[in-house]
Amino acid sequence: MRLPQAILTRAWRESANLAQLLPEVRTIESARSELRWITEYVHEKMTDRASKGIKVSEGDLQNKISHLCYLRGQKGFPLQYLLGSQPFGDSLEIKCRRGVLIPRWETEEWGIKVAQAIRRSHPFFTAGAQEDLDPGTDIPSEATGHTFKVLDLCTGTGCLALLFAEQLRAPTVKSVYVEGVDISQNAVDLARRNRSINVGQFEQYGTSVVFTRADMFALDVASDHFDIIIANPPYVSEEHYYSCRHTTRSVRRFEPKQALLGGIDFYRRIFQLAREGAVPAVVCEVADQEQLQEIVDECIDDGWDAGGMSDSAGVARTVIAWRKELSAWSWMKQLIDS
């Protein structure tokens, strides 16, 4: 869709950089925000360089800014690849690189909601406080373990695994363990880098994060005793991938197909892993209501309670499932859309 001439003229009058951004960014307001982020990023980088004794002129600075605006607006590069990162959670910085999917706001949103709900409601976290006061208390059997274990399948940049590490803080004498798995070596390398950048956000709470390269269809977690599986598996259907109405050009052109194309097979496998490993809870991101329904119908058996949770844009975004017989997880129904 072509931009109205009036908007372009307005942008030109304001600044050439703004006008450069418009074809991809579409609105003046967003273009202004992006220009500000780009400018801040370049200034930061240049200050960094200057502190290392490398000379930078005002001209270099301006050139760098307009080059980035060109790549962003005219070539459609995602801003996150150009700036190399995306803020995530309360204080994580997730590095982004070509070849690994960019973290989405929807993922951040449900990740925070779920992690915080676990921390507020799961006996592992809530019983901890009482136990400190009174060492003799009987804690529910599901919560007797001293390590809460999270498995993040299809971890990509590691954003979800690190988010859970940031948000879940174990009571004293207990700890949290998060394992992220991805088939792509690129992704695992980047996830490890992200762990080392953000380790300060969780290591003092005794939380550890491990990234493994593995194909989830060949994974065996039967004896690992995970407490929850979280995943944002590839869920874009072939049909939606090639439809401009669903998938934007920038996604198709710049993000890895392997991170996107997928669907029901992945969910079937995730729930199979949960059954094999006796994992009591599963939360996965989904494409829409239709996919959610398909998953509930085809992948989840009678032993589970399940439902969907929508995002702030009102789209069905997650499937949430927990084993019926376990009281430690029954609070999860509060997360389900009413």
Binding site: E29, S30, S33, Q80, E106, H246, T247, T248, V251, V315
Partner: peptide
């Protein structure tokens, strides 16, 4: 009530927008 600016379309993996307003 929370409104996400320009939150139209499929969202999720289909879009890599920077819209954060």
């Amino acid at each position: 009530r929370i409104d996400i600016m320009r939150a139209r379309g499929a969202g999720g993996q289909h879009v890599n927008t920077t819209e954060s307003a």
